[in-house]
Structure formats: C-alpha cells, structure tokens
C-alpha cells in the first residue's frame, strides 16, 4: 500500500490519473479521500458499482469519505485482490496516520508515504497558521517528496522551496515533477506479484538510463545478513529513490523481501502464497548522476 499525501491543489489527482492510465498490467485500487471534483478521468471509467468505480484495465477506485474503516474493509475484501492499494489522502490528512493502517494490518505491506508539494503555493500554505502544522506533518512523514508544478516557478524560488523541504525532511528523496507526471515504477517500486523482479539477469548487473532516472539491478543467491542489509540500505544517499530485493537470509529458511523508499526500510519474509519464481537479487531506481552505479555496486559488494 502506498499513501499519496499533499495539500489541496498540489496535483495528487493528476498523478493518480496518470498512474492509472499507465498501470501496465498492475491492478491498482485507489482509495480517494478528497471529496472535491470527480477524481478519475471520465474516459477511464468502465463501470460504477455503488462507491466503486471500475476501470477497463482492471484498476478500481473507491471513495473513502470520512469512514476509513469502511473504505479499508471494502478494499481488503475486493476480489480479485489488487496488486497495489493507493490511498489518495485528503488534502488535510496526515498521511502517516493512514500509513499506520498498512503497518498494523497483516494483509497489507506499507510501500511508502509519498507527499506531493505544490511549488507555486507551498510558501503561502506553509505560513498559514491554521495549516502549517498539517503541511509540516505531510512533509516530515513522507518517504519521498514530489515537488510539482516546477515548470511554473522560477529556478531560484524552486531552490528556496527545496531547501525548506530538506530542512523539514532530510532523508526523503526530493523529485521535481511537472504536470503531475511520474513513472509508475518510481512511484510504486518494482512489482513482485508479477512473479519476478524485472531486469535481473543471472550473474551480472545492468543499468539503464532514461532522461532523469537511472535503474540498476544485481542478481545474487548468496545468503545475506539481514542486519547488514538494513544498515547498507540505511546508508544509501537520498538520490537512490527505491530499492527492492528478494534474497536468502543467513540462518533463515525461505525467501525474504526487502524494500526501501526514503528512510522507510522493510525487511520481511516473502509471503508463502507469493508466486515468485525468478532470480533472487536487488533492483534500484534513482536520480541519474555519474555516481549512481558506483554507489550501488559498492554498497552491495560489501554484503554479498
């Protein structure tokens, strides 16, 4: 489960629509907690059943209103079970509180809290004394920050905005976004329900580049010490946006899964009902810079 937070007008709805449009076979269920305009583009909607909108590509969208209990119960009982649950938090919600549902509920895994910030109105909202504490909580509680509407703001304002954000939250990666568009694998991370981690090839590592993001992977069937792995993940710079891996842990049976987004690290046993059958190893995605590959190669060399 991923929680998308951010104040009103920050562009959450646009991003959600983008992610649904590019779901690429993932079955995403969105719970919407804002009650403003209709959140899902009309052309995506295939059917409406009570509170639940179903989309032609297998995704679904459910309005949660003020009743989190009912919304989570509906999402968890939804058949077939979605691959991802995406919570679009209300503009005044503290996303961490919602993320607690995933931390507490055994049937859910928290895939991170992502907060979207509107570069145009950030300063105004942040200094409104009725909202400042809410906005602060949205930023400090995030594992990844998306600074949206970057095309509408002069560079110096953008930099000022970024430095304020870093002041509140130094561990979450900060990504500049325009028009609320971000690729799904950065937002959700790799999808293991598909049966394997993408891009891992036996005995080697690869990396691919697109404009601003770089991808990296390594295959390994070495047994890995969980504590050492946690420490390694913790030490990675915030330019490494997401890491996910499936591995054998020293002194333990079966397969384990690790994932990191920002400061959120989760290492747990791979559910026994998982259909995973690919190579074990790790994949990462990060901001494209010259050290990207070296950082990851070095980090994983030490624990292999």
């Amino acid at each position: 489960m991923t929680v998308l937070g951010g104040f009103l007008g920050s562009g959450k709805t646009t991003l959600v629509n983008h992610l649904l449009r590019h779901a690429d076979g993932k079955r995403i269920m969105v719970l919407v907690n804002d009650f403003g305009e209709l959140p899902i583009d009309q052309d995506l909607i295939a059917a409406k059943d009570g509170n639940i909108l179903t989309l032609a590509n297998g995704c679904a969208c459910c309005s949660m209103g003020a009743d989190l209990y009912k919304a989570f119960a509906a999402a968890l009982d939804y058949a077939p079970a979605p691959d991802h649950l995406l919570i679009e938090a209300s503009g005044v919600a503290e996303p961490k509180r919602i993320a607690n549902f995933a931390r507490a509920e055994p049937d859910l895994t928290l895939n991170g809290v992502i907060t979207m910030v509107d570069a145009v109105n950030f300063e105004k909202t942040r200094t409104d004394n009725r909202l400042s504490d809410i906005v602060e909580a949205q930023i400090t509680g995030a594992h990844m920050l998306l600074l949206n509407k970057c095309d509408l703001v002069p560079t110096q304002d953008l930099e000022k905005c970024e430095s304020v954000l870093r002041g509140f939250n130094g561990t979450a990666p900060l990504i500049r976004v325009e028009h609320g568009v971000l690729s799904a694998d950065i937002f959700f991370g790799e999808d293991i329900k598909a049966g394997r981690l993408k891009e891992i090839s036996e005995g080697s590592h690869t990396h691919t580049h697109e404009a601003d993001f770089a991808r990296w992977s390594v295959a390994t069937d070495t047994e890995i010490d969980k504590a050492a792995l946690r420490e390694t993940l913790l030490q990675l710079p915030s330019s490494i946006l997401r890491v996910k891996g499936i591995f054998r842990a020293s002194g333990e049976d079966g397969l384990w899964i690790a994932h990191k987004v920002g400061a959120h690290i989760d290492i747990s046993r791979l559910p026994t009902d998982s259909s995973f059958s690919g190579n074990t190893g790790f994949v990462a995605i990060g901001l494209s810079n010259q050290d990207f590959t070296t950082i990851l190669d070095t980090a994983f060399q030490s624990i292999k």
Binding site: Y69, A73, L76, R97, N100, F101, A104, E105
Partner: peptide
C-alpha cells in the same frame, strides 16, 4: 490506540460500529 491499530482486530471480529 486509534483506528489504524484497532482495525485489524475489528475486521477479524466483525466489529463495525457504523
């Protein structure tokens, strides 16, 4: 304490206050 922590129990025991 609070709904997030209570939810897994309420769901499994069928406690739906609304």
């Amino acid at each position: 304490q609070e709904m997030a922590a209570m939810f897994p129990i309420m769901r499994r025991l069928g406690i739906d206050l609304r």
